[in-house]
Computed example of a mutant assay.
Amino acid sequence: MSLLQFAVSIVLFAVLGFGIGFIINMVLRTTWLPVVITVGVIVGALIYKQIIPGVVDSIILACGMIGTVVSGWTIQTLRKKGYRMF
């Protein structure tokens, strides 16, 4: 994997994790459910495939996880500031 692909993958997974987490938070009105789902999917996929991800794969998955956590934090902050739709 080239350095450009790695950089784009990091940004893509972070934005994708944030977007999906934000939508799940808005629809289901939960704060940390997307984080639990993300961890479950990652661990389940690793157990099912019985593989150990490399360093690059781990960094990319961690960035997706960070995006999901940031979406939960954002929803929580918006709720505290009085936005009822969240």
Rank of each mutant, 00 (worst) to 15 (best):
L33M: 12
L3K: 12
L4W: 06
G72W: 00
V41K: 03
Y83E: 13
T74G: 01
R79D: 03
M1Q: 08
I51W: 09
L46F: 13
L61K: 04
G17C: 02
M1A: 14
Y48H: 11
M1Y: 07
W73V: 14
T30N: 09
G54I: 09
A62N: 05
T74C: 07
F18S: 02
L12M: 11
T31K: 13
K49A: 15
A45R: 05
M26G: 14
K80L: 11
Y48K: 08
R84V: 15
A62D: 05
I37T: 00
I24G: 00
Q5T: 11
Y48I: 04
I52E: 12
Y83G: 07
T31V: 13
T30G: 05
K80A: 15
G19K: 03
K81E: 15
F18R: 01
I42H: 04
D57L: 11
I37M: 05
I75C: 00
T30A: 07
G40E: 06
F22S: 00
V55L: 14
I42Q: 05
V56C: 06
P34A: 02
F18W: 01
V56I: 11
V70L: 14
I66W: 02
P53G: 02
I47Y: 10
I75Y: 08
R79G: 06
L3G: 07
V70K: 05
R79H: 08
M85V: 14
T74V: 08
G82P: 08
F6L: 12
Q50D: 15
V11E: 07
L3F: 11
